[in-house]
Amino acid sequence: MLMTTLIAGLVLGGSYALLAMGLTIQYGIARTMNLAYGETIIASAFAAYLLYNNLGISPILGLVIIAPAGFVFGWLVYGILMRPLVARSENTATLEINSILATFGLLFVIQGVMLVIFGGNYISYNYLNFGVEIIGVRVAANRLLALGLALTIGGGLYLLLTRTRWGTTLRAVAVNPAAAPLVGIDANRAARFAFALGGALASSGGVVVSMYQTFTASSGVIFTMKALIVVIMGGVGNLAGALFAGLILGLSETFVAAYISPGLTIAAVYIIFLVILLCRPAGLFGKVQK
């Protein structure tokens, strides 16, 4: 029981970490809060489902198609929806509020389109749905694969951002968007790229989650909320923090569901969120500014 819960928690936490990484990049580097983030996740989950059920394309192969699509989508959303708002807003506070409101509208549009196409039913598909013996516990193979994928993609992203020149550019914009142009960085382009990268991560996360979880057209909001909680817990823009916080969230959710009541998972998530916000508003690893 304990081991099963632990592994289920790690799988869930790994997915949360992956999802949160995309959001932390969008929010930390592009400085825009994307409330339609969860809708990108769910749309990708639906895409994976369609590819697998109708065309027989496995989700891993589907990832190769869906993640770039998420990138393009993010690129377009930033160019069309966010860019005018960035130009209009006089400071980060107004930009935040404006981006929240605009992506709110986007949330409804995407959700509405998905409701029209797929209806409101819970959807799942059977992929690698057999048990694998691991340290004395039987775990579904698709869950293990999901965990592996989340760690691979997340780790790859981490290396990309910390080891390449190009990642350094992005991190420079995250640290100080006003000073970045002084050293020859096109902050605007970097922001757009970061937003698109976040979209690609959301899509990959959606595919990963769809392999082992059921989802509906309207569950995007919950994903946005959880991703945000992880982002805030880990510290905005902090990838390692997102990984750690994601695991904490996944584990506590699974343990509450297993040992207390499945009806109280959101309450548990929320209490953790509240405690973190009150005690460490800059995140678990954030430096206290002031």
Binding site: Y27, M33, A93, E96, I97, I100, V221, I222, M225, L228, I229, I232, S261, G263, L264, I266, A267, Y270, F273, L274, L277, P281
Partner: peptide, 23 residues
């Protein structure tokens, strides 16, 4: 809390109350 933190918090509050009442 400022900006987006409050937005998310307030949204979560509604969900939390709903889940607690349901539970």
């Amino acid at each position: 809390l400022a900006g987006v933190y409050f937005v998310i918090f307030s949204f979560g509050l509604a969900e939390l109350v709903r889940q607690l009442v349901t539970w």
